[in-house]
Amino acid sequence: MQIISISSLKGGVGKTSVTLGLASAARAQGIPTLVVDMDPHADATTGLGVKQGQHTDDIGTLLERPRRISLADHVTPSGWPDLAPGAAEAGIPGNGKALDVVRGSSRTSLYERPTTRPRELRRLATLLESVTRYALVLIDCPPALNGVTRMAWAASTDVLLVAEPSLFSVAGTERTLRALDLFRSEYAQGVRTTGVVANRVRPASTEHQFRLGEMERMYGDRLLPVAIPEQSNWQQVQGAAWPIHAWPGETAAQSALLFEELLAALHRPQGRRSQRRH
């Protein structure tokens, strides 16, 4: 099972949007996927169409007793529609593969205090040991290097950092990579690869093109070969709680293809080992 933490230490760079785009791509390809919403704002939970008040515990509550409960008993199916617009009339079925969610909540903030105690860092990893039906787990982390993010990294096989092509985001991501490398060496040896994706890119912006070149120089081959452009209707897509693959229009279709490319750059089917070890 591949476990990918989607992280950023700067808010507003579209971390949750990338998480939802990857979930949509995985669902479109029939990859059984679990999304764990570790962000106290629980935006991924909302974007996946999952209502609060379900008959399952949220991740903040589950982290309180990781050895005494089964996470598999507390997953919720996503609320995304099974069919693309017009598919029902055309008789096109859904793919039937799982896209499940562990709900986020503000209770996760109880674990924001940075810690290096192994028992604390292992809470999420212990919970994930009880789920076996998924090929892919996506963890939406809070935009901070706190105990919650460290807990997610300690449970992961891969970490994806999301960055905008802007001065503060580029510099912050470089610092995050250094912090992540140090954390991996001491507490998260299970993390096999780390990468950076440029998000909210405006191709016509001279500043963005300059920063993209800067990112290539600073991050080297850690910068993934997929850049996600800024999409004007992304808020509308998320507000409707729809997958990008089902949203009408050419812009959405192009974004859907880019998320498939990003997933292909990240996802390692069982039995295939990645050559990227950064």
Rank of each mutant, 00 (worst) to 15 (best):
Q235M: 11
Q235L: 14
Q235Y: 10
Q235A: 14
Q236F: 10
Q236D: 11
V237T: 01
V237S: 00
Q238L: 13
Q238N: 05
G239F: 11
G239N: 06
G239S: 10
G239V: 06
A240N: 08
A240W: 10
A240K: 11
A241V: 06
A241Q: 04
A241S: 13
P243R: 00
P243I: 01
P243E: 04
H245A: 12
H245E: 11
H245T: 14
A246S: 07
A246Y: 06
W247M: 03
W247T: 02
W247I: 03
P248D: 14
G249A: 12
G249E: 08
G249Y: 11
G249I: 09
G249S: 10
E250N: 14
E250W: 14
E250L: 14
E250C: 11
E250Y: 14
T251R: 13
T251L: 11
T251A: 15
A252Q: 04
A252C: 08
A252W: 04
A252V: 04
A253M: 09
A253N: 05
A253Y: 07
Q254A: 07
Q254C: 01
A256T: 02
L257E: 02
L258G: 01
L258Y: 02
F259Y: 13
E260T: 13
E260C: 13
E260V: 13
E261T: 12
E261K: 15
E261W: 15
E261A: 15
L262H: 06
L262S: 05
L263F: 15
A264G: 11
A264I: 06
A264C: 09
A265I: 04
A265H: 05
L266E: 03
H267G: 00
H267Y: 15
H267D: 04
R268M: 12
R268T: 09
R268P: 00
R268V: 07
